[in-house]
């Protein structure tokens, strides 16, 4: 049953190979990476184009990802502090 699902998913993913570009040629003629590469060093004066994309052109995604990391650390620490021998390790709800 699960093998049938996996096989169907593999065929469905394989059908998308008709619309992916060949491996090594650029995507379209005016893809956005080219316009960012021509513009990034003039505007941000940073040598590393990937860092200037992560913190400059796409700064909101970095803000959201920092929030996700913060919440995950909080959840992990709270889960680990409820082990046996802690102060609040009983599951009684009152």
């Amino acid at each position: 049953m699960v093998l049938l699902i996996m096989f169907t998913l593999f065929i469905y993913l394989g059908l998308s190979l008709y619309s992916i570009h060949t491996f090594g040629q650029p995507m379209k003629d005016g893809y956005i990476g080219l316009s960012i590469l021509n513009d990034a060093i003039q505007r941000t004066h940073a040598s590393n184009v990937v860092t200037s994309i992560v913190f400059g052109y796409r700064g909101y995604d970095t803000l959201g990802e920092a929030t996700i990391f913060f919440v995950a650390v909080l959840g992990f620490y709270w889960t680990m502090s409820r082990m046996k021998g802690g102060k609040d390790s009983d599951d009684s709800s009152r």
């Binding site: 941000t44 920092a66 502090s81």
Partner: peptide, 28 residues
């Protein structure tokens, strides 16, 4: 000292990941 506010944001995110991942290691 070039590149404006990107260097400052790099350092603050570095400090944040250091604290967060260190807290996970200590809890484990």
């Amino acid at each position: 000292l070039s590149s404006g506010v990107i260097a400052l944001m790099n350092i603050s995110v570095g400090i944040k990941v250091l604290g967060g991942a260190g807290e996970m290691v200590v809890a484990l």
